[in-house]
Amino acid sequence: MDIYEIINHRQSDRQYDPERPVEPEKIRRILEAARIAPSACNAQPWHFIVVDEPELRNQVADAVASRILGMNHFTKQAPVHILVVEERPNFTSGIGGLIKDKQFPLLDIGIAAAHITLAATAEGLGSCILGWFDEKAVRKLLHIPDKKRVILDIVVGYSTQPLREKKRKSADEVISYNKY
């Protein structure tokens, strides 16, 4: 697929084949796509934790699911969780963020997450980016220091969900030229 086909095929998948593991070489290529993502002042303010061991993966899925709201229970089906931990930016990015009142590490992590999901699509895999989870429980399960922020959990696996039509605002609503 070319890049535009990959973009059009990428969706937030919430159904996975729990019996089909993801090949390690595909995960390595996906992580390489994230590792080389651009970041403000080349800060690379991220650390990726791959969880694919079945028992730990189920524990992480429990921390990601909300019993009260009935959210994210599908994550038990996904064979891989990629947790994205925010790391300190380098000096230049940190100072630039203070001066310009922008959270460059979060922007950079968003770019890396896009690389992960697009690379997953290119590998024939589905993915879903999750920000709703019990961060304290995830930190404890994965031995992440208390002062670190777990920003995202990206689940990856072989999707069993059909490709959906994208429902987006029209181009006229979100694009303008030379003025707002």
Rank of each mutant, 00 (worst) to 15 (best):
K76H: 15
G70T: 01
A37Q: 11
L98Y: 00
C41P: 02
T75K: 03
R139L: 15
K148T: 01
I111D: 06
Q77N: 04
K167T: 14
D134N: 15
Q15K: 14
M71N: 14
G97I: 04
I7N: 11
T121G: 00
S93N: 01
P38Y: 11
F91A: 13
Q59S: 03
V22M: 04
Q161E: 05
C128P: 02
E123A: 11
A63V: 13
A137E: 15
L130C: 13
R14W: 02
D146R: 15
R67D: 15
V138N: 02
P18C: 04
T117K: 07
I154V: 13
N72R: 06
S66C: 08
R28E: 13
K136R: 14
I151C: 01
L69Q: 14
Q77A: 07
P45N: 07
E165G: 07
A113V: 13
K166Q: 07
E25G: 02
H143N: 15
D13W: 06
V60N: 06
G131F: 02
W132S: 14
L163E: 12
Y16C: 04
E53A: 11
S66D: 12
L56R: 11
A112R: 02
D146F: 08
L141R: 05
A112N: 10
I151M: 12
Q77W: 08
Y158D: 00
N72F: 00
R164M: 13
K26M: 09
R29T: 02
C41E: 07
K140Q: 15
L83I: 15
R168K: 02
Y180L: 10
A171E: 11
G70H: 04
F48P: 05
N8T: 10
D146P: 08
E173I: 03
S12T: 08
G96W: 11
V150S: 04
I49L: 11
F91P: 08
K166N: 08
E165D: 14
A43T: 14
Q11M: 05
A120C: 06
H47L: 07
V80E: 09
L106T: 02
A78C: 04
A37P: 02
I82A: 00
P24H: 10
I49T: 01
I129K: 05
F48W: 10
G131V: 13
D153C: 11
G94L: 07
T117P: 08
L98N: 02
G124M: 05
R10P: 03
I3P: 01
C41Y: 04
Y180F: 10
M71Q: 14
Q161K: 01
R149V: 12
I95L: 05
Q77H: 12
M71T: 15
D2S: 07
L141N: 06
Y16P: 00
E5D: 15
E23S: 12
S159G: 08
G97T: 07
L152N: 01
D2G: 09
L163S: 10
I6S: 05
A65D: 05
H81G: 00
